[in-house]
Design a protein around this nucleic acid. Structure first.
Lengths: 132, 132
DNA sequence: CAACTGTTATACTACAAATATAACAGATAG
DNA sequence: CTATCTGTTATATTTGTAGTATAACAGTTG
């Protein structure tokens, strides 16, 4: 699992970490039960403070993606991923909504939009990085 | 055009404003050429500072959604909306990506995801608010 | 002239992000 | 047993953004 941070991004570091770990799980490059680096070693690896890693891990745990064991370590949830609850779907829709509104303003038709979503879906499943 | 703010939201006020104005344009409730309230009157209406409104308007202008005329007022861009440039599509994909990765983790299949995007697309076109 | 427009400037509060240190408590390998 | 690793907690500091509060400027318009 390679973590790549953009220090110029408007996204906080801990958010970039969360996004990349979730995508790693989605693509299968991180398997349930697999160990994640300790807060200290990952912090040292990518050159940030251990609290930044800890914040990302804590949020991932709250959402059910990972388990954190005191004095042991961090592991991708071996009991499987959290389900798509109604609360999740509502929050998801709230995040999709402004993106779709923008697309409509820019005259993107429904088929084009769905095609973009579909290709991103496939890219993630096949572990493809952002278009370089 | 009715603006509804959620002061408990994690989204900044100016971002909520931007989102609602863009959705207003997308749904057709705001037509090209239509006047928007002045920074002062809108600020007074919704109970925020005029600089907060000004920040939202300035960003909307930078993206081409509105025009701002000194000593006149603010208007939805009468020359039409900005096109879907490659830069826009790339930024759009970056924002879609983490949402789709989350959906994959939660075992949402491609058809379900596309169906959700499609229904939001239709909701916006028909001016429907969030599911109450 | 008065009232309105966007614009600019300054100052302040509040909060989030990130860092820097330090210490604690339990597990484990030597 | 001791040293080392784990997550956890606490405190303090720096930096940047969000938002507010006031004030003034310059041009338009009734």
């Amino acid at each position: 699992m390679i973590i790549r941070l953009d220090m110029q991004s408007e996204l906080p570091i801990y958010t970039q970490l969360i996004n990349q770990i979730i995508e790693g799980i989605a693509s299968g490059s991180l398997q349930p039960g697999e160990d994640l680096p300790s807060v200290r070693s990952l912090a040292a690896d990518i050159g940030v403070n251990l609290h930044t890693i800890n914040k990302a891990y804590t949020l991932l745990k709250q959402e059910g993606y990972i388990q954190i064991h005191r004095q042991k370590g961090v592991v991708v949830n071996p009991d499987g991923m959290p389900p798509a609850t109604p609360e999740f779907e509502q929050k998801q829709a709230e995040q999709f909504r402004p993106l779709i509104a923008e697309a409509i303003c820019r005259s993107m038709d429904k088929a084009s939009l769905l095609q973009i979503v579909e290709s991103i879906y496939e890219d993630i499943l096949h572990g493809k990085k952002e278009n370089a």
